[in-house]
Amino acid sequence: MSARSVLRAYREIAALPLPPRRTARPRVAGVMLAAGACAGLIALGVARLISGPAGRDGWAGAKVEGEGPAGDDTGIVAMLMTGPEADPDPATPMTTVDTPVAEPPPPAARGQSAEIDRTLAAMSRAASAHAAVDAVLAAWNAPPLAPDEAAVPGDLPRIARQRSLEYLPVMGNASMLRVLDLPAVLELHVSGADEPRYAALTALGTGRPVLVVAGAPTEVDAAFLDRHWFGQAHVFWRDFEALGPQSLRPSARGAAVARLQALLRRAGANDVAENGAFDAATTAAVLDFQRARLLFADGRVGRLTRIVLYGAAGGYPRPTLVTGGGGTS
């Protein structure tokens, strides 16, 4: 639809005889002008759609992960973020979980929140990141950072590799972190600081969340996370059974698939045979596991599914966020 056709239609409508009621003419004219304006806007909108949607910046230059190397599954409320070297598939639908709205904190909790704000604001971004990462490494019994070792998000993949860990940046909420059940470095936005500050979340069970701020564990009210954490988190994990950097999917074969099948059996999938073939029974077991944990059920075993599967199988020296109140599974 062009502007010329809109104008022509308007003139034809204007030429139609109208009832002799004077009071109705301004109203009819207004309606016709509005109709013409709407038609013009629709035409512009169609042109915009044809030209394609505008790009949306990702978090810190990252983009949403699809089925790329080193992990393929999208979580219940998580959007995995990867660097530009990964080629994402089209966006995968996600199942969301409603999170109860936190009630306003009592005055004592507000005072504590203000104290944490002041502590974090007084630290530099780098210093808060160093302390938070050190706290998560301590939970893993991994070597601590060197005093001058940088630990901002861009350094975390290197830090993980040097300590035989894997690194997973995520975007989600507290429900997603409960599913992962691992300590996490949270990116916080506090008053008095023009850059993010970091704290380690080490417990998120039935009690109050525990943040490690500047090396000191501190219980906080749940409303504190609602106000200061916008969903960006950093998780270390370990691929205990060496399932490999690529996701395992139907039709795969080999020793890694046999180890996956053993994991599934330990998690309760007794119908799976440890034959090294990602067959129909293995696919069904993976789908059942993903649905039971509210993961996106695609039958493929990427990073999210592996993390949750290791927790469900148990017996691994890994810290926990929820199930053990900061202990190991």
Rank of each mutant, 00 (worst) to 15 (best):
residue 204 L to N: 06
residue 314 G to P: 11
residue 254 G to E: 00
residue 253 R to F: 09
residue 210 V to L: 07
residue 206 T to W: 00
residue 57 D to Y: 07
residue 90 P to W: 11
residue 208 R to D: 12
residue 34 A to G: 15
residue 251 S to D: 15
residue 69 P to R: 04
residue 11 R to E: 12
residue 220 V to Q: 02
residue 185 V to H: 03
residue 35 A to K: 12
residue 107 P to Q: 02
residue 26 P to F: 15
residue 228 H to T: 05
residue 35 A to N: 10
residue 251 S to W: 10
residue 166 E to N: 11
residue 199 A to T: 03
residue 75 G to Q: 02
residue 205 G to Q: 02
residue 318 R to M: 06
residue 265 R to L: 00
residue 139 A to K: 15
residue 129 A to L: 05
residue 4 R to V: 13
residue 47 A to M: 15
residue 227 R to A: 12
residue 12 E to G: 01
residue 134 D to F: 00
residue 23 T to F: 10
residue 304 L to G: 01
residue 286 V to L: 08
residue 58 G to K: 03
residue 311 G to C: 07
residue 128 S to W: 01
residue 79 M to F: 09
residue 255 A to C: 07
residue 226 D to L: 01
residue 158 R to V: 12
residue 43 A to S: 15
residue 46 V to W: 14
residue 168 L to T: 00
residue 11 R to K: 04
residue 161 R to D: 15
residue 29 A to M: 13
residue 179 V to C: 07
residue 150 A to S: 13
residue 194 D to F: 03
residue 258 A to K: 06
residue 11 R to D: 10
residue 271 D to R: 04
residue 81 M to Y: 06
residue 42 I to G: 14
residue 29 A to N: 13
residue 103 E to V: 06
residue 86 A to I: 13
residue 180 L to T: 08
residue 102 A to H: 10
residue 93 P to L: 09
residue 163 R to Y: 08
residue 309 L to R: 02
residue 94 M to I: 14
residue 54 A to K: 06
residue 37 A to P: 00
residue 94 M to Q: 13
residue 206 T to D: 10
residue 208 R to H: 07
residue 163 R to A: 07
residue 182 L to M: 13
residue 202 T to K: 07
residue 117 D to V: 11
